[in-house]
Simulated assay, not measured.
Amino acid sequence: MRQIILDTETTGLDPSQGHRMVEVACVEMLNRGLTGRHLHMYLNPDRDSDPEALAIHGLTTKFLSEHPRFEDVADEFIDYVKGAEVIIHNAAFDKKFLNAELKRAGKPSFDSLCGKITDSLLFARELHPGKRNSLDALCERYGISNAHRTLHGALLDSELLAEVWLAMTRGQDALIMDFEEGGASSGLNGLGSQAFDATRLRVLLATAEELQAHEEYLDGLDKAAGQPCLWRAQAAADA
């Protein structure tokens, strides 16, 4: 199973107002293992970033002017993501920019290129209702260091999100449940869970001594109740 964790940085909030992508980064996972095969592109948006956006990513117009436009690298991007499950934190935001850039380049929509698009923010909200589920908050919750994250860079954020995603979904391939405060399970919630394979479970049979101890325990229950206990009554009914 090929999964891509993706993040973008932009000049502003809305492509319909002429804002563009300035950075896109992808981190590849195969069968839940990071492969080290990343895709990272800085992009020339042919415009300035809004001050608020520049304060977030720190990518100046002069720096970006030395990099290719999206249409020049669109095919490379398409080849990388095609057919994969793409995991994005707050996917609606990134998707509208990706679709706008692809449309401008005369390419198919982002949704049509991917095998599946998964919003890790929606997943986190289902897993941790009522809690903060920003990338920073999830890193703190799962013990993932983001101390080196002073600006939002797409590649760094993708790498952090990959670690967060593996932590959030570890219950999908192991019968291990971790519980947070309040008793909420953080590992099993059924979203996108893999098929359960009972053949992987080890079967342990009771020893003769354990069976004898069990019978003696039931004898005590019978004596205290003055009649066969429910366990033995049910066994007799099934016989």
Rank of each mutant, 00 (worst) to 15 (best):
I5E: 03
I5W: 03
T8M: 02
T10P: 06
T10N: 02
T11F: 02
L13P: 00
D14R: 00
P15R: 04
P15E: 05
P15V: 01
S16M: 12
S16I: 11
H19Y: 05
M21R: 04
M21G: 05
M21E: 05
V22A: 07
V22Q: 03
E23H: 11
V24P: 08
C26S: 04
C26V: 07
C26D: 01
C26P: 01
V27A: 02
L30I: 15
G33W: 07
G36D: 10
P45Q: 04
R47G: 00
R47P: 01
R47V: 01
S49V: 07
E52C: 12
E52A: 15
A53P: 07
L54W: 05
A55P: 07
H57T: 04
G58T: 04
G58S: 06
G58E: 01
L59E: 05
T61S: 06
T61W: 03
S65A: 00
F70Y: 01
F70R: 03
D72S: 15
V73C: 12
F77K: 00
F77C: 09
F77G: 05
D79Y: 14
Y80G: 01
Y80L: 04
V81W: 05
V81C: 04
K82S: 06
G83A: 03
E85N: 05
E85V: 07
I87N: 06
I88E: 01
H89R: 08
H89S: 00
N90T: 11
A91E: 07
A91R: 09
E101P: 01
L102R: 01
K103Q: 14
R104C: 07
R104P: 00
R104T: 04
R104M: 06
R104F: 04
A105E: 02
A105F: 07
K107S: 04
K107G: 06
P108Y: 09
S109Y: 08
F110V: 08
F110E: 07
D111W: 13
S112L: 14
C114A: 08
K116E: 13
K116N: 15
I117M: 03
T118G: 11
S120F: 12
L121M: 14
L122Q: 14
A124F: 05
E126M: 13
H128Q: 13
G130E: 12
R132A: 14
N133K: 15
S134R: 11
